[in-house]
Design a protein around this nucleic acid. Structure first.
Ligand code: FES
Ligand code: FES
Lengths: 153, 153
DNA sequence: ATAAAAGAGGACTATTTTAGTCCTATTTGA
DNA sequence: TCAAATAGGACTAAAATAGTCCTCTTTTAT
């Protein structure tokens, strides 16, 4: 069902291996070695992430990449946006930016509202939580009924 | 990003037009006319939905389809499962697949838990809510912070 | 009986999306 | 000046999705 692409999964792994802000740069080749992902793919991912301002880069010899900001301030939603683009059934439902056709729009259906709801939840999950093997378990509440998600294993 | 396929969207529309349980059957051709979706596609959708036990069918002349149970007892998660299959949020975290990056990957499990959380939320949304033009807006709570999603328009 | 109306179940093609690779230009440090 | 890197695309390959079509079975009406 609602699936993120494999590249987004890889991208998260790449981000998890990058040095933090202020630390030294790490080259794409080093990231590829650390993650086990092929270099061309890592390179492509890092370029996309840099373009999205999630990663900062230094060019030339001794160049490389590092996180553009603290892992705690990089959300799952941002990672998805950077690597999959704000694609959705309709352009306006993809982002939080409000379309001024909303009031007269007939295609703003329930699925799109659900999509927005999920999206907002994803904005509350940051890279630090994604990195941790035992991150706090997300808990969703819907229509007054708390839904608790158990920790695995 | 996390998008549902077009067929799933169509499928929801088809379900919304089907007669309720105990009412008379409606043929695929009638559903196609009512929804504006091409007949072969409607037919395919109805077959998938029937196989998933979300709709009941009658064969032969005067045959057709109706909801297998009350709309309030058909969840969004079931509709997605019927039309897209029970795929996971990431390929790696699917139970039947084994990713060769697993040994170095620190994030697969986090995406999987997010997936479970989203699934559970989707199980709480039913067809009646999807049908309503102005359905109650889903509200998600994550890690103690309530996230309210405003009604559109 | 027979014919017609419908669904069941696949097979098939076409389209679109996604993944992965590669090439060339540019930047930087030694 | 050379070598190490990223930037930015172009390109191909692979996979998922959408859509169509064919044949078989079931049911009802004549
Ligand atoms: S066109 Fe913007 S809400 Fe539908
Ligand atoms: S388990 Fe496959 S990339 Fe994480």
């Amino acid at each position: 069902m609602l699936r993120i692409s494999r590249l987004t999964d890889y991208g998260t792994l790449v981000l998890a291996h990058l040095p933090a802000r202020e630390a030294e740069l790490m080259s794409a080749a080093e990231v590829a070695a650390a993650t086990g992902i092929n270099l061309p793919t890592v390179s492509k991912l890092l370029k996309s992430l840099t373009k999205a301002k999630l990663v900062a880069s230094g060019r030339g010899a001794q160049g490389g990449y590092r996180l553009a900001r603290d892992a705690a301030r990089i959300s799952a939603a941002e990672i998805i946006d950077a690597l999959e683009g704000p694609v959705s059934i309709t352009e306006c439902s993809a982002t939080d930016s409000h379309c001024d056709l909303e009031s007269v729009c007939s295609v703003g259906n329930a699925w799109q509202r659900i999509n927005v709801a999920i999206r907002r939840a994803l904005q509350e999950i940051n890279l630090t939580e994604l990195q941790r093997a035992r991150a706090p378990v997300p808990r969703f509440e819907l229509a007054g009924t708390p839904i608790h998600v158990e920790r695995k294993g």
